[in-house]
Computed example of a mutant assay.
Amino acid sequence: MTGRVSLVGAGPGDAGLLTVRGLRALEAADVIVADRLGARGVLDGLAADGVELRAEVVDVGKLPGHHAVPQDGINALLVHLAREGKNVVRLKGGDPYVFGRGGEELAFCQEAGVEVIVVPGITSAISVPALAGIPLTHRGLATAFTVVTGHDQIESLSGGRDHTVVLLMGVGTLAHSALTLARGERGAECPVAVVEDGFGPRQRVTVGTLATIAAQAAERGIRSPAVVVVGDVVRISPFAPAELAVGALDVSDEHTARLAAEQL
């Protein structure tokens, strides 16, 4: 008898942000195939809260530049375990479908005749900026946002400071990304926030502009994991310096003057 696979989003790493449906899937699992980021933090957090899971945990965690288990190996493992009749949870950081390759795992399992259930999770693209008091949209400041990785081609990203950009896995390419975005409509003075290790022990926020953030990152030794937010919504953050705060918008600039008027 073939088992099934549940693709469960672990969220950003705080066990309190795991969904109830995700918790129920973990409790019913025979085997948990877990990522490093998010997933491991949730399992540790559940254990600390006294939640006992009977499942065997298989760690397939990926480190930057090194894949402990290749994606093809993970796909094959999920099918193998399910064909042994086991109830398998593939515990993925954030949401399985936001830069998590969940779609690939779903397709592979379905092609092998294995039933798959998807349990969404809270993506770090939204939850980590919230830690720094940054909403990705805000009336009068931003009406849209785009989520990309630092490895994507961002030259084609349109919009100004009222179109928020969220960079995931972007620390290594931060200098290039900042320079590229500064050349566009956003300009060099566009606010930027970097939130390191969201919901983790090294949680820290750095705020600057596209012109300054690379130097700040080097000076402060910013490390992955981190989420980068670009746009005027950064001005709302309590971590924003006085010169970048919403009340300090430069009304001599046509763009910020319009935004300031909408705020009033």
Rank of each mutant, 00 (worst) to 15 (best):
G200K: 11
G140W: 09
H67R: 15
A248T: 05
S124D: 02
V5Y: 05
K92D: 01
V60W: 05
L249T: 00
T143A: 15
V207R: 11
D14V: 01
A240W: 12
V98Y: 11
R4G: 11
H151Y: 10
D197V: 04
M169Q: 06
E219R: 14
R101Q: 11
P64F: 03
A112L: 13
A214P: 11
G140Q: 06
V58M: 03
R258D: 10
Q153I: 12
T164A: 09
G247I: 11
G102N: 08
N87M: 04
L106F: 15
H66R: 15
I213H: 07
D95M: 05
P225Q: 07
G133M: 09
S156Y: 04
R83F: 06
L43N: 07
T206G: 03
A178K: 09
G100E: 07
T206S: 13
P238C: 14
A68I: 02
G41M: 00
H176G: 08
I122G: 02
H255M: 13
R161H: 02
V118T: 14
G159P: 06
V114F: 05
I154W: 07
T2Y: 08
R24E: 13
L179E: 15
V195P: 06
C109N: 08
G13K: 06
P120E: 11
Q71H: 13
V118I: 14
H66L: 14
D44R: 08
L81S: 03
E115C: 05
K92N: 04
T164R: 11
V251R: 13
L244M: 09
G150P: 13
A125H: 09
G45Y: 06
L168W: 07
E219K: 14
S6E: 11
I213R: 05
I126R: 03
V227I: 15
T146V: 15
G198F: 09
T206W: 02
D162R: 12
L136Q: 09
